[in-house]
Write a protein that binds this DNA or RNA. Structure first.
Lengths: 347, 347
DNA sequence: GTGAAAGCGCTAACAA
DNA sequence: TTGTTAGCGCTTTCAC
């Protein structure tokens, strides 16, 4: 069938990007008030009389007006946006904190934007510029910022910053974390108390895992234990590395009677590998994880692991950011939220 | 000790939020050029002569200037921001897609902002207004937008939208997904081919899982199988529900010889519960998961599951968004990326 | 309770 | 290659 001549074709709809978007001005015109009155009806409705407000609401609905927060933010210098930097969005470890951060900030009128840094830190400075450039009302970092360039950038920006999940004597600004050295030492002590003497470590190569190892080694030395065997894996760690890691550990040091893993997924892999080798857990081998992710309670054997209260960490960080963004002073801007060893069957 | 009089106290540092932030104007003054030349040196360096560029760079470094992307975005109507809406950031299922979306968009100069909707859809419209208000250059939805209000909002906004993970004959704009009905039917067929006749479903209560059930039921009918037993759990589903779910399924229908689970975590819970009951997998009970998350290959028995190519989905969506944001027309804006059954030991 | 004027920091459009 | 002018859409400030 021949194509009809172009003139009879239905009107091509205007390219979607160029369709004029409704602005405050048009709402104001339609409602017969000034722009600022519309602005008030939206942001501080108490300042506008009821009949006016109703007329404005009608205009907004009929025009389908959606306020441009970019423009408002430029003028008011408040973006109502908080950026959280996480190593990975895939891992369940940070999920709890991110969720509670998001929920708590939403209640106070902020949106959370997530940025993935990766464990490698290579993109960190670059990403940081893109983030600071958007002038968020707050920045939440997973871990401590080490790069001097990054620290300078954040400090110069004047944006409230919360570092989390770790501890340092000189935070950039605010901090809600815990000592991973203490945590590693506590796990070592726990295993020692359970009668374990030939310890092993299966650990990701990220910084916080390194601190846990340090505390673990130090405590092992203090208790007069043989130096723990070590197997390192690339972070983020998972089930596969857990299986391979235990195999490697046993090849190097066949008589170990306990393993501290730097993540629960790693520990799950260790449980699987132990089962494949008919090693009894905990009788022959005690296993401790990190993170207390959901399955830790319900696997067989249930997993002894270390729990960080991600919900509290997220809520605390949210409070810090929101208070500071609203001009309040945070009385105690450095908080140690600690950890707890969840003792279950595996150790 | 009495407080010294106020005048002798060290100067209170200026409140961090009020410290004046460096703007383009100051860089221009310091470099002895106009503002627009600085703008060009940053955004289109090819247009600026080398000596000028070097002077400007020096001024930028010495002042610690970070461009205000909000202001630039307001003027240029391009935010270089793409928003992705996901049910949860915790689950590993969407992680692969989000990662590849982020990576692919970064290469083209966009940042990805993540918004959590939850499975309940209650916050969806509200969140959508907050998102559209920031005028992102693109929006990626996990799943299909059903709410008429949401559809209208998105369509009126003129922002390029990609719906993902699902299929519909009438997408809002662009689509890269798959048919969950076909997927459910394929799994049913697979189990039938393996000689299973008394099927069970353990499923989350989200929409896409419902579509998989529908296809599964339909195929079971077609094959003349007994109606599959069903146990529903709340999404997002996890290990605990997998254990409890299998228990419930067996209580209702003790002779089932296969279970199709709506997530791999659920399937892992089923494997655990089967082990606790000394039910042999796959001999007594075949288990199929969904998602092909990392541990599926390495658990014992390894998990037969359905894989969606999240990387390809993310890359495709990224290409769609970036092309459209740059004014190009997307030739085939609706793509079915399909699925594959990863046959392993459990079925 | 409402409005007019100014301007947030930047870039498009046009000019030289 | 560089500059001038205007204005993005909104909110602050000040006035009535």
């Amino acid at each position: 069938m021949p194509r009809p001549p172009p003139s009879t074709l239905p009107e091509t709809p205007e390219p979607i990007r160029n369709r004029p978007v409704v602005t405050l001005r048009e709402v104001a015109e339609q409602a017969g008030v000034s722009m600022i009155t519309v602005s008030r009806a939206i942001n501080t409705p108490g300042q506008v009389s009821e009949p006016t407000r109703i007329r404005i609401q009608a205009a907004i609905s009929s025009l389908g007006y959606v306020p441009n927060l970019i423009a408002g933010g430029l003028r008011s210098a408040r973006s109502h946006l908080v950026t959280a930097l996480v190593p990975t969005t895939t891992g369940q470890l940070f999920g709890e904190m991110v969720q509670s951060l998001t929920d708590a900030l939403e209640l106070r009128g902020y949106q959370v934007m997530l940025g993935q840094v990766g464990y490698a830190h290579s993109r960190e400075d670059e990403l940081l510029r893109a983030i600071v450039g958007r002038r968020p009302d707050g920045i939440v970092l997973t871990g401590i910022m080490h790069s001097p360039e990054g620290r300078r950038l954040l400090q110069a920006s004047g944006i409230p910053v919360v570092e989390t999940w770790d501890f340092t004597p000189n935070p950039i600004d605010m901090l809600v974390g815990l000592s991973h050295e203490q945590l590693g030492a506590a796990v070592c002590k726990h295993l020692h108390a359970k009668g374990r003497r030939r310890l092993g470590l299966l650990s990701g190569d990220d910084e916080r895992a390194a601190r846990r190892r340090k505390g673990f080694y130090a405590e092992a030395g203090r208790l007069g234990l043989r130096e723990p065997a070590l197997q390192l894996e690339k972070s983020p760690t998972s089930h596969t590395e857990g299986r391979a890691g235990l195999a490697a550990l046993l090849a190097a040091q066949p008589d170990i009677d306990a393993v501290f893993c730097s993540s629960d997924m790693l520990a799950l892999g260790v449980l699987t590998e132990a089962r494949a080798r008919a090693m009894a857990v905990p009788d022959q081998l005690a296993v401790v994880g990190f993170g207390d992710i959901e399955f830790a309670q319900t696997v067989i054997p249930s997993l002894t692991t270390v729990r960080i209260d991600g919900t509290r960490m997220g809520e605390t960080a949210a409070g810090f950011i929101a208070d500071r963004a609203e001009g309040k002073t945070v009385a105690e801007p450095v908080v140690d939220i600690g950890f707890s060893i969840m003792e279950r069957e595996s150790a």
